[in-house]
Amino acid sequence: MKISVHANKFKLLTSAALIALLLSGCLYPQTDSSSTSTVSKESMRNVQAAIEQYMNEKGILPIHNSDSTVDRYEKFRVNFDVLKKERYIDMLPSSSFEGGGNFYFLVLNEDTAPIVKAQSIYLIQRIIDLQRQVDAFKAENGKLPIVDQVYEGFHTIDYKAMSIKAPQLHSIYSGGIAELLIGESGKVYINYASDIYQMMKQHPDYELAEEHDLRELLVMYSDYVPVHSPKYKLVNDEPIPYE
């Protein structure tokens, strides 16, 4: 089906520059000159070409094994050790974790048409930290630190009850302030509904079946995967999260 868009149903998030922290240290002596706060198009092209060449010659993908329970957008990390050792790449992307940067490089569509995408380590770390605080609050108080229900099964976070400041995280897609939610499971999520909605507006002719996970739009039209996200479905032309 074709996605139709109603412009007044979502407010645009405030535009802001993406804030990224660099990981200290470097696991390898050689890196390229791309920025470690973003992922350059050149880096994406180089890694894509390397994994395709490796796959064509070896018959397997140069990726780390992953547990079957891991979300598909967090699952298969590029194995730079293999690519560098066997000279499929000469230099590591400086934006990659292995090159001292702030992104994991992942492979999606591993069984059909493998494609390289990037995952923000900074966002992963911040959500993991917040998850620990939420879990500690629940263990001590016997309930989740939640306030308003914004979607069925998803609430905003009661930072005041936890005596912490709300983290100012920015969307890897729009640069706007990212809304954080807690699902019924107690899991902390970044809400990508606004980002998905903007992709729907920008690509109104893209055909997406109702049963598809709408995060597909974010991955298809950007170099990044959504970090710590729920799945999304189309309900009345709006992206709605679900666990």
Results as ranks from 00 to 15, higher is better:
residue 204 P to E: 10
residue 89 I to R: 05
residue 217 L to G: 12
residue 68 S to M: 03
residue 4 S to G: 11
residue 4 S to P: 00
residue 114 P to S: 05
residue 11 K to E: 11
residue 123 L to W: 03
residue 12 L to N: 15
residue 146 I to N: 03
residue 124 I to Y: 05
residue 138 K to D: 12
residue 168 Q to G: 01
residue 142 G to C: 03
residue 227 V to W: 05
residue 177 I to T: 13
residue 47 V to E: 10
residue 231 K to R: 09
residue 65 N to K: 09
residue 128 I to D: 11
residue 124 I to D: 10
residue 41 K to Y: 06
residue 2 K to S: 09
residue 46 N to R: 12
residue 95 S to P: 05
residue 23 L to F: 01
residue 8 N to H: 13
residue 208 L to G: 02
residue 238 E to T: 04
residue 136 A to P: 01
residue 199 M to G: 09
residue 56 N to E: 12
residue 185 S to N: 15
residue 133 Q to K: 15
residue 34 S to M: 07
residue 92 L to R: 07
residue 217 L to W: 01
residue 144 L to D: 08
residue 40 S to Y: 02
residue 33 S to W: 00
residue 126 R to W: 03
residue 25 G to K: 08
residue 236 N to M: 07
residue 62 P to S: 13
residue 201 K to F: 08
residue 184 E to H: 07
residue 163 S to V: 08
residue 44 M to E: 02
residue 71 D to H: 13
residue 58 K to F: 04
residue 44 M to K: 09
residue 168 Q to H: 07
residue 153 G to R: 05
residue 192 Y to S: 09
residue 172 I to Y: 03
residue 31 T to L: 07
residue 188 V to C: 11
residue 173 Y to I: 06
residue 128 I to Y: 12
residue 232 Y to D: 03
residue 52 E to V: 14
residue 118 A to H: 01
residue 184 E to W: 01
residue 190 I to D: 00
residue 205 D to C: 08
residue 181 L to C: 04
residue 127 I to C: 10
residue 242 Y to L: 06
residue 220 M to A: 14
residue 36 T to S: 15
residue 31 T to A: 06
residue 106 L to C: 12
residue 99 G to R: 06
